[in-house]
Computed example of a mutant assay.
Amino acid sequence: MTRRLVQLFVGLWLYGATMALLVRAGMGLDPWDVFHEGLTHQLPLTFGQVVILVGALVLLAWIPLRQRPGFGTIANVVVIGLAADATLAVLPEASGPVWGTAMLVAGVVGNGMAGAMYVGAGLGPGPRDGLWTGIVRRTGASVRRVRTMLELLVLATGFLLGGTVGIGTVLYAVAIGPIVQLFLPWFEVRRVAAAEPATT
Rank of each mutant, 00 (worst) to 15 (best):
L171D: 01
A121C: 05
L160K: 07
H36I: 06
M117Y: 12
F35V: 14
I176M: 15
G48H: 14
F9G: 07
L123E: 02
P69I: 11
L29Q: 14
G26D: 07
R3M: 02
G120Q: 01
G166H: 05
P125S: 02
L184W: 02
M149G: 10
A156R: 04
A195L: 01
V90L: 15
L91Y: 13
T101K: 14
T164L: 10
G166M: 03
D33N: 11
H41Q: 14
L53A: 15
S95E: 13
L82E: 09
L153N: 01
A75M: 13
P44W: 03
L123F: 11
L21C: 10
A86C: 09
R66I: 02
G130A: 02
G115S: 11
V192G: 06
V58M: 13
P197I: 04
L8W: 11
G124D: 00
A20T: 00
F159E: 05
E196P: 02
R3K: 14
T200R: 12
T200M: 04
T46E: 02
F9E: 00
W62L: 07
L160R: 10
F35T: 10
N76S: 11
L150H: 02
P125D: 03
P197E: 06
G130I: 04
R191F: 04
G70T: 14
A61P: 09
L57G: 14
R128F: 12
I167F: 12
Y118F: 15
E196H: 11
I167M: 13
A83I: 04
G55H: 11
L60V: 15
G107T: 12
N76D: 14
E188V: 09
V90P: 06
W32I: 03
P44S: 09
Y118G: 01
Y172V: 03
A195K: 01
R144S: 09
E188C: 03
G166L: 08
L171F: 15
A156W: 09
G168D: 08
L39E: 08
L161V: 01
H36M: 12
A56M: 13
Y15G: 01
A116D: 05
M117N: 03
G115D: 05
L43A: 04
L155F: 08
A84I: 05
L60F: 15
G177L: 11
L104T: 02
L53Y: 08
A84E: 06
P44M: 05
F35R: 12
T164R: 15
F183W: 11
W32Q: 07
R68P: 06
V170H: 08
G100S: 13
V143K: 03
V165K: 13
G107M: 09
G177W: 14
V50D: 05
M149V: 10
A175K: 08
V105H: 13
M149E: 09
L153S: 04
